[in-house]
Design a protein around this nucleic acid. Structure first.
Lengths: 182, 182
DNA sequence: ACCTGAACACCGTTCAAGT
DNA sequence: ACCTGAACACCGTTCAAGT
């Protein structure tokens, strides 16, 4: 009476993310995900409680894809690297990425990334009372920029122009940090 | 053979925005909009080409709601007022607002707001070559912040904490501008 | 000219049934 | 234990038909 397990939660989330990247998040449906896994839609409900849960899982996977930098490099460099890593995720998953701006950073992968940034800011010398606020601001600015870029809000501007925009974002953030540390 | 016209595009968009504010954008369906207008869903298709067009119309309405400040007040004050006006729109329409980050500012209401900010930056003394970039950055930061606030990404933080966060946003923007003008 | 009824393909979700 | 079939309520959209 035991059957081989054909799917699991991770396989479902991986297939969902692939599908969204291929056809856009609008077309991310339970049925299309099931098709990718050669299974009926109803089989998914053993591993995700509903579609909202599936989307949460996909978002969590996105956060997990943020490549955190080597802790041995200088903290300011690490901070810059986190920003670029987030941008890279946005470019890999342009239609899913905007969801990141819509949920609080309370899931494990979100907390991990946030805690890392908080540790870096502390190490750099931002006063403890200001660190949390500083992190909120930086993440908001970076996520907003990356989401805009991914969703094509910058319109017809070339990659070069957008990269230069991002340099300015970085300098604004550096400025913010050095203002707070002095 | 002529019939009284029961609905029109503006009525549809107004009803859609009201509905989204009441029940959330997820529940914004053609049928629910039609119900509000006492009409069948198919009647809407004479005034909107499809649901995407309806959503575009709603977004445009949101942009039109941004209250532009009195042109007689000092430019730096006007700039601050535009930011607060955008935040106010986000708070009035929390579930629809995040859509603003997803589309390029090419529609009339978007262009109007953007041109106003560009004029203000020019007046303040940002070099012409930098004005467009500066506007992109400012709008990205403000939209990202307002969308985060509206979507509840700042989690359980009190309004007071978030207002203080926003003060820091404003100071970051002021810093950016004064760096560019010197 | 403007709206409706009927119809279609699709969606998320449930529950009992199959292996 | 794991998946499927059948079913339900709902969705966006079309098109011919009604007034």
């Amino acid at each position: 009476v035991a059957r081989p397990q054909r799917i699991n939660r991770e396989a479902i989330l991986a297939a969902s993310l692939d599908l969204a990247d291929d056809v856009g998040i609008e077309q991310l449906t339970m049925q299309a995900v099931a098709d990718r896994l050669d299974v009926t839609p109803m089989a998914l409900y053993r591993y995700v409680s509903d579609k909202a849960d599936l989307l949460d899982g996909v978002v969590e996977r996105l956060l997990g894809e943020i490549e955190l930098p080597d802790p041995k490099t200088p903290p300011l460099e690490q901070l810059a690297a986190v920003g670029q890593a987030i941008r890279a995720v946005a470019r890999r998953h342009p239609t899913v990425f905007p969801l990141l701006l819509q949920r609080p950073a309370t899931t494990p992968a979100a907390v991990q990334a946030r805690d890392r940034v908080i540790a870096l800011l502390t190490e750099i010398g931002v006063p403890p009372r200001e660190v949390a606020r500083c992190e909120r601001l930086i993440s908001t600015i970076i996520l907003g920029f990356a989401a805009s870029e991914a969703a094509g809000r910058f319109g017809r501007h070339s990659r070069k122009v957008i990269d230069t925009d991002y340099q300015l974002v970085q300098s604004v953030i550096s400025r913010l940090i050095s203002d707070l540390t002095t």
